[in-house]
Design a binder for these strands. Structure first.
Lengths: 247, 247
DNA sequence: ACGGCTCATTAACCCAAGTTAGGGGCAAGC
DNA sequence: GCTTGCCCCTAACTTGGGTTAATGAGCCGT
């Protein structure tokens, strides 16, 4: 799967985005062209840069890099609520005409593509499939959120980490960002992973060690190798259906 | 606020639903009438009845009662992902044309109202405000989900329970289901509460005791009394903004 | 009135995960 | 070449919350 998407996509991030959208709802050549013309490629943003809310006025798409939505609590604790990978909308506020109040940070060099809200509105009228695809994307985002709730609520540390690694494997595969050898780049520190799965940095480390020892994965300098996907999904109790990548 | 909504609403559940929708987006008299005519009141469903997915083919609204979405894991652990209160859509699959795969149970005698998907589609075209209101409802549902992620990820047991009690206070106030004396019905056992906030039954009990001792709340036979809302929101670090009930 | 149920409650004990406190590798800047 | 600063990693200790188990209150249905 990753090979297929990888070779097919080349490495133009806008094409990746179109490919991702098409998985939600097929888009004809005309609609794709309209998107290509309407999208503005933003500047390269360095890692650990917080995005200002007004930067999300438009319809924003992550073209490359990595973004996390998070919330900082009074006591200094931080929870990452959403991981945005290339090809994803950064925020779905545009669907309901509100700007989200969530905080966003990049964790890697990132590039955002924008379509002016006004322009997107016109596209949505002209190409209903585009609107449907965006709405499906929002629905899948919600499904991912529910899955995170389940992880945080009833899964053990090992299950949570295995889950999120599985989830990312499938999400990144869909956009050709996994290698044929079974690896992908994960530009998050263990502390950030912990903030996403609700574990302390130390325990993330402990648990990753034990996942490595089972032979399901290995890690090296920001790269995750899925050594045994079967074992990993079994360990996590993971079922990729909620990502609706089959279409 | 509860008084206002309460007296204004009377107790017709369809009016409650319309009131709730209007908080998302104002609906004119014509749109309201169209909804009144299109909605079919279902039978009364007893507590602890699981809803079959096909029962959610249509646009389903909880008219009265209480519904939980949950997921059962292999090891017998259960996580409740969403609490549906009267006036809420039971599921948002209709917005994207998919039937959700989530399991649902009633925890109280409940009545569901349905609008045939086809009929809703026509209404949506005729009354764009109705569609926008539904989409906003979905967005708020997602925001509630994010808040749950934050609770499960970084809040202590006391904060989680305080949070959810605050959330319900505000949600129920908006539909006139809180009393002027500061109470509301919470038709969930402590075990179910635990499944919602990711705590064991025993620890829910312990923590509720301590919340009672602070004087912020009291509990009695399925009724929650908010004795000191200020204290409770402070304890939870709760900010009702995400529910967007101000409009 | 009597079992039998579910639910709230409490106590005693246990463990998964948090906390604190390092050590070591590596890259960036001086 | 040296410092500074992350980040990964590990060990030792602590703790919030889970587990087990038992009691009692209320609510049926007979």
């Amino acid at each position: 799967m990753s090979n297929f998407a990888g070779t097919l996509l080349g490495n133009d991030p806008v094409e990746r985005f179109l490919h991702r959208l098409s998985l939600f709802e097929p888009l004809d050549a005309e609609a794709r062209d309209a998107v290509r013309r309407s999208i503005n490629r933003g500047p390269l943003i360095p890692p650990l840069q917080e995005l200002q809310p007004d930067a999300l006025q438009d319809v924003s798409v992550l073209l490359s890099g990595w973004i996390c939505h998070f919330r900082l609590l009074g006591n200094g604790r931080r929870q990452i609520t959403t991981l945005v990978v290339p090809g994803d909308f950064v925020d779905f506020g545009f669907l309901v005409g509100t700007v989200s109040s969530l905080q966003c940070v990049t964790t890697a060099h990132s590039q955002i593509g924008r379509i002016r809200t006004r322009a997107f509105g016109k596209l949505a009228l002209q190409f209903p499939a585009l609107l449907r695809a965006s709405q499906r994307a929002a629905a899948v985002d919600a499904a991912i959120g529910r899955e995170r709730i389940i992880s945080l609520g009833v899964r053990t540390a090992a299950e949570r980490l295995a889950s999120i690694l599985c989830e990312l494997w499938f999400r990144l595969s869909a956009i050709g960002l996994t290698s044929a050898e079974g690896s992908y780049d994960l530009p998050m520190t263990q502390a950030e992973l912990g903030a996403a799965v609700g574990l302390s940095t130390v325990h993330v480390n402990r648990t990753l060690q034990s996942l490595r020892r089972t032979g399901a994965i290995s890690l090296q300098s920001g790269k995750v190798w899925i050594r045994d996907l079967e074992k990993l999904t079994a360990l996590a109790g993971f079922d990729p259906a909620y990502l609706s990548l089959q279409a």
